[in-house]
Design a binder for these strands. Structure first.
Lengths: 186, 186
DNA sequence: GTTTTTGAGTTGACATTGTTAACTCACAAA
DNA sequence: TTTGTGAGTTAACAATGTCAACTCAAAAAC
């Protein structure tokens, strides 16, 4: 007789999933360690077998999000006539579609100390920088990559906080315009 | 005989000051309602006479910071040969010199609901947009202003989180280069 | 000049949170 | 059969945000 249980739930990833769901439903406000374990149907302290403390749990959730973003950038880069612009659009689309998650990633100050998160972010930036390097004069690559990244992050933040001038239209369209302004041959 | 007391301490602003000090010393982590009142030498609930809850207190602290930033942008704009670039430099200088405060301002999601904070931010943006409008072709002003703002915010965030490529030099210098790349006649 | 009102703050309590230390207990190894 | 051990639980702690009820001095009203 086979067990009815979900076949090795792997609590660690269950917790990440629970965190993502809470994030999508209640935003950062609801994202406590106890809330996450509660939703995972497990006792609060169970999380400590997989995460040193609450911050490490949050960092892991953020990391999972960044890998998703990286994948989105990669497909955008591959599948479009204007790859750099497509990346910009994909970036702000991800941010607006996963607002709370994006805020977790770039919100608090816990960033520098989590190598996993660092790596994921470096990978995402790598996709962008590689495309810029192929699009722009060699001497300009470094600065333009950085400028693009800043531009997209800034735009995404403003869009999420509905701080864009109300007549700016869809943030994705804005992303396309702004990236084009910075790198005309995107 | 004149009183020895500090002549109408105006608890509200004392609390703001205490918050700023905590922010500078311990970062956002230490910025609890109880910590603030404790440092102000007053009981925890005293804050509720001036702020509806902890978030309103934080919003007020953030607002005070944004007005400071606005003033910095204004003087930078007035006192330089290349006013737009000076604004960019002043912006990231403020952010890096007041990292925790900057994170409070742009960190959590409590933004849209605090008109005071909204106004302060609109004022800061106004300074920038006005200068861009004077520097750039009429049709381009809107988008370029926005792009500048995004650029500066993105750069400031990355600089604070030490996520800039390590060979980028001082963030202020970087700000000058990036703004110039976007608006050559800055 | 006495009474009343009120503004500004305190005390004490409550529910929640993150975290720790000590435990249970099924299952694999010996 | 015994012994470990991995994965989780229970019970408790200190700290937090918040509320309701109070104190009490100084200003207003009569």
């Amino acid at each position: 007789m086979s067990t009815q249980k979900p076949a090795k739930p792997e609590l660690r990833s269950v917790l990440l999933q629970a965190g993502r769901e809470i994030l999508a439903a209640d935003g950062m406000a609801g994202l406590g360690l106890r809330a996450v374990t509660r939703r995972a149907g497990v006792s609060p302290t169970a999380a400590y077998r997989y995460f040193a403390d609450r911050e490490h749990l949050l960092a892991a959730i953020a990391t999972s999000g960044v890998w998703e973003l990286t994948a989105d950038l990669e497909t955008a880069d591959r599948s479009a006539a204007e790859p750099l612009i497509a990346q910009g659009v994909a970036y702000v689309h991800f941010a607006t579609a996963n607002a709370a998650l994006y805020r977790l990633i770039f919100g608090p100050e816990r960033l520098a100390h989590y190598p996993e998160l660092e790596n994921a972010l470096a990978a995402a930036y790598g996709i962008l920088a590689a495309r810029v390097a192929k699009t722009v004069a060699p001497g300009e690559a470094e600065d333009k990559s950085l400028a693009c990244w800043c531009l997209m992050h800034g735009l995404a933040s403003l869009a999420i906080d509905t701080r864009l001038p109300s007549d700016s239209g869809m943030p994705e369209a804005l992303a396309a315009r702004l990236v084009k302004a910075l790198v005309p041959r995107g």
